[in-house]
Nucleic acid binder design. Structure first.
Lengths: 338, 338
DNA sequence: CGGGGCGGAGAAACCGTTTTCTCATACCAC
DNA sequence: GTGGTATGAGAAAACGGTTTCTCCGCCCCG
């Protein structure tokens, strides 16, 4: 069906070994004439080396796998797409796997190992219990697969064999919450879960402003806007004094806002709202939503350069890079700063 | 590094060929005792057959690749995730590729061919010019890779070697536009592009209601809500008589709504709005958005059964399945039906 | 008692590369 | 003329499986 190395070799009139070395730019003593012929014929026959034969022999696949989470948040889809687009520049074949959909962690790792990739770029590897990711890193590292953790939120000991590039989400939520307190006073609540460092940032803002009472509407992360809506209704009932709400995500903010309006309050006059993720619609929402944005481009280009380094065989110690989010202030909080 | 077939064979005391046949459940004459031993030892040593060696020999990879588009629409991300989750049930290793991010179609096909997958499930294969997809299908089919086109909008000749499961988007937009006309009268505009059959449905609704003037705000699909916002401002200026707008997507609808409100009009009293995609937030938006929803679950389960059939070697003629979207009526159009 | 058939298993080819090792010729210096 | 070394290229092993073919011994039947 497809053209093999042997066919090329036969057509040129040399042995496969020569052709292999020439096409792979390996040092080989061959006349310029023959070299030229080989390249021509390979091109003419549209020869593509067989991935499987090649990997079987050399033990190393050129493949890079991007492990990415699918979720309710468009934010994730955008990050994945940008990362994919960027990483493509290494020239290595790139495929994506979504590991979270596996019931059994073991099966997931098997899939990852099966393809023997050169590297795995792992976006938001929050998954399973704490040590799971570190174990997977070790196992992959033993098989000479580099792991690059992008946007992993947990603390990573320096000896875990992977590179890490992280955006400090706790800092992002700290920025948002501090701003909310400045706008709305001390009665600022948070609607969301404890994951992703959001809670930490909320608490830091409170304590920095000398507020010792936190108001939290807990979310289980199921069905983003719906649960936030219901939780907020209850929260406003219990705490009518609330004047600001930090939402776990922009999507959740929509549920929160609906609940607020149903109680007859207006935004931002009665309650200030901030979201998180900088979804593309936040600017066009009514009211335009104050939100936290991540430096996606920087994240992508850093990931690329780290990946490229590893692919080039660069053997530096594991990197631990931290980036900072920024606050985008819009009408859902604006005009009330004190 | 990893355990090979030979090691298992040696430990049991038989030849690799026996072990291979036993582990693959191929017909082999072997005593129950030996069979048992082989299975035990393989398990004990945690033996995993090498993908590359196996594919090299057999010519066929067990892999299934899901080709999925990343885009601005959360809808797509959700479809991809559900499909991925569903297709996992075949038990075949499943990876994902995003082909649209390639500059060169040829490079994309090469990536697809490189892994010699058993099957490719291609979600929304709108890409390149019309015949490109059909050519790719032929090429893949020659290499014995099944293609299943999910949600491909163009007309597919019966002899194109792929299965197709499609949701009739033209029908979806027809439903939405007919409803808008019933609510808002004959001055119903559309904001969007001609892709995805939306325009066709809009025109069908107009002509069925005897309206011969169409009002269209063209979108280039770049940056969804922003462009829709700008286009709508112009449209309302040119056509102050507009009383209904069908939006290409829910996300675009947010831009449209912002523009409408800035001109001092209210929804749905002055203008009725319908979107498309049934994004999770449409119900929580203010006002809740009338939208078109696709039968995702049905799409997924049909895809799975078609895929499973092909993997099982079922050789029926190419299927052409059509599904229908449904309209979800909410407050952005409600209460004005005539 | 001889031959056919079957149960159990081994030997070896093969898939398409990469890589190491060997080999022949030619040229140069001595 | 001989030894050494470039130069150009071939032969063959290896990677880890799958698959086909062969082989031996045993039982059963005629």
């Amino acid at each position: 069906m497809s053209v093999t190395l042997r066919e090329v070799a036969e057509k040129v009139g040399v042995t496969p070994s020569i052709v292999s070395r020439v096409l792979n730019d390996k040092p080989v003593r061959v006349s310029d004439d023959t070299r030229q012929r080989i390249i021509e014929v390979a091109d003419e026959l549209n020869y593509r080396p067989d991935l499987y034969a090649r990997v079987l022999q050399s033990g190393k696949s050129p493949m890079v796998i991007l492990v990415a989470p699918r979720s309710f948040y468009l934010m994730n889809a955008r990050k994945t797409a940008r990362l994919q687009q960027t990483l493509r520049r290494t020239g290595h074949p790139l495929l994506t796997a979504d590991i979270r959909l596996f019931d059994d962690p073991r099966a997931a790792i098997d899939l990852l190992l099966l393809t023997k990739p050169r590297a795995i770029v792992w976006l938001s590897p929050e998954w399973g219990d704490d040590s799971e990711f570190e174990e997977i890193c070790s196992e992959l590292h033993e098989r000479e697969t580099h792991v690059i953790a992008v946007d992993y939120q947990k603390q990573l000991p320096p000896d875990v064999p992977c590179d890490a590039i992280t955006v400090d989400r706790a800092y992002g939520s700290y920025l948002a919450c501090r701003h909310l307190i400045d706008c709305a006073g001390e009665n600022v609540a948070m609607v969301g879960g404890s994951s992703g460092g959001r809670l930490q940032g909320y608490r830091r803002a409170l304590s920095e402003r000398g507020i010792d009472r936190e108001i939290i509407g807990w979310l289980s992360t199921a069905e983003p806007p719906r649960e936030a809506y219901q939780v907020t209704l209850g929260l406003l009932d219990d705490h009518p004094e609330i004047e600001g709400i930090f939402c776990y995500s922009d999507l959740n903010a929509m549920g929160v806002i609906k609940a607020i309006r149903e109680t007859g309050r207006t935004i931002p006059d009665d309650i200030c709202i901030a979201g998180y993720d900088d979804e593309p619609w936040t600017e066009f929402h009514d009211p335009p939503l104050t939100t936290v944005t991540h430096p996606i481009e920087q994240l992508c280009s850093l990931s690329l350069s780290v990946l490229q380094d590893r692919l080039d065989g660069n053997d530096e110690p594991w990197c631990r890079i931290g980036l900072h989010p920024a606050l985008k202030i819009r009408a859902s909080t604006a005009g009330r700063e004190k």
